[in-house]
């Protein structure tokens, strides 16, 4: 591809830290795009959980790439190897870069040691979505769950990640909780590394 090489340098040779790539787009652009993704995905699946899986798959691709970008840009190439480290990286750096703010809370599951929850009261991907009644428990936050899964998987923390709507009093809309359940080997490794 000599013709292309003469115009733009190969992708890996371009700067990733410039202000150019940090340009902002209108939130509408993303909302419309995401809505089309949901609608398209609906035509390829037959039930709600398949739809969530499909959205998570799309998010997964985003997560894998976002991790690479952020590790270079914000952590000078250093990757996390502890559970708490990677979780706070998700809660703070990843969220801030993707959604413009840190997530609202990061908690440890009460019932199991290997479960953690990241919650957001106003998750960007759910802001413009209303779920029809016949699709009951669908949560398009599955896309964000996919991003989290992608980040975790490619930094060596395989986990099962799912999105849930949690209603609580005093809130006009349900908050989105992303439940992370780490694989046993991750917990084992973290214990071995000690504190």
């Amino acid at each position: 591809m000599s013709q292309r090489g003469s115009v733009l340098p190969p992708l890996v040779d371009r700067h990733i830290l410039t202000s150019k790539t940090r340009n902002d787009v209108g939130v509408g652009a993303f909302a419309f795009l995401f809505s089309e993704i949901v609608q398209y995905s609906q035509t390829r699946v037959s039930n709600v959980s398949e739809l969530e899986r499909k959205l998570a798959d799309v998010g997964f691709d985003v997560g894998v790439r976002m991790l690479e970008l952020l590790v270079h840009r914000e952590k000078a190439g250093k990757r996390e190897n502890r559970i708490l480290g990677i979780l706070s990286f998700l809660h703070t750096n990843v969220w801030k870069n993707l959604f413009g703010k840190t997530a609202d809370s990061l908690e440890r599951g009460t019932s199991a040691d290997d479960e953690y929850m990241i919650s957001d009261h106003d998750l960007l991907v759910n802001r413009f979505i209303s779920v029809p009644r016949d699709m009951g428990h669908l949560n398009c936050g599955a896309f964000a769950a996919g991003i989290v899964e992608g980040v975790l998987k490619s930094s060596g923390f395989p986990a099962r990640v799912t999105a849930h709507s949690v209603t609580s009093e005093g809130l006009s809309r349900p908050k989105t909780t992303i439940l992370i359940k780490f694989s046993p080997e991750v917990i084992e490794r973290d214990e071995r590394l000690g504190s």
Binding site: R22, V58, D61, V62
Partner: peptide, 11 residues
């Protein structure tokens, strides 16, 4: 409202 273009691009 503006959001980081990277989310949009990667999505």
């Amino acid at each position: 409202d503006r959001i980081n273009s990277e989310l949009f691009t990667l999505t």
